[in-house]
Computed example of a mutant assay.
Amino acid sequence: MTEGEGNSQANHMVGHRDRLRQRFVKAGVDGVQDYELLELVLFRAIPRRDVKPLAKELIERFGSFADVLAAPSARLQEVKGISEKVVTELKIVQAAALKLSQQNILKRQVLSSWQALIDYCTAATAYEKIEQFRILFLDNKNALIADEKQQTGTVNHTPVYPREVVKRALALDASAIILVHNHPSGDPTPSGADIQMTAQIVQAAKPLGIRVHDHLVIGRGQHYSFRTEGLL
């Protein structure tokens, strides 16, 4: 490659980055595609390389922008060009998105901010590769006082112990709880074990005055509410 060709490619890359940034500033997230949004993130970690092919490869391998952010660090580094520095940048963006969703419901009346709650639960669990079981603890005004991950399981099962759930609710002086777990398959339809476990928690919590407002099963872009479906 001659010096002139190298300068031309460098100028093209700089021009592409500037144009993409300007398009994002003008139109926001709706003005860019998933791989372009990923490019904007990669710009910071990889300042002197055309990252469009890398962004497209990541989307093709993992499925979406959100899937890339949620992918395990080890799997990300299997992709040529993804260093520890790049992984850190991706995980910072993921953490920021989760924190923003969390702040939209923290200390607020959760039952009147239902979409914000679903958005948060989706950000927290939908793209995990294994099942995890979370509990949202609410005070007597149904404001969120804590969100805790209780258990992590396998790709299709998470062991949950009703006694431990109730014990933790009492320790936090919670008046109500919302159960949340994800289905890595993407299908939020509850299993028979999910339904049985929920009934056991309701049975254990009721005598102590702790209400189970809902059990949310989070899939990919969809969720299942036990309350809405008449299972609570």
Rank of each mutant, 00 (worst) to 15 (best):
G31E: 01
L98I: 06
T154K: 10
G15I: 00
G31W: 00
E229K: 12
Q203N: 14
A97H: 08
S112G: 06
A55H: 00
L208M: 08
A204D: 11
R19H: 05
A204L: 05
S73M: 06
S64L: 04
R48S: 15
A174C: 03
Q109M: 07
T198Y: 06
E36C: 02
W114R: 10
K85N: 13
T228F: 07
T152W: 04
K91F: 00
L208Q: 14
A71R: 01
E89I: 03
C121R: 12
T228R: 09
P159E: 13
T122C: 15
L216V: 02
Q94E: 13
G221N: 07
G230E: 04
A143N: 15
K129Q: 10
H215G: 13
C121A: 14
H183D: 06
Y224N: 11
Q151C: 14
Y120I: 07
L232V: 08
S185Q: 05
H223F: 03
S191Q: 03
R49T: 14
H16D: 12
H183F: 01
V29D: 13
K149A: 12
F65R: 00
L38C: 09
L69Y: 00
G209I: 09
R49M: 15
K206T: 14
D214L: 04
V110A: 04
A116R: 08
R21E: 09
Q150C: 11
S64D: 13
K85Y: 11
R44D: 14
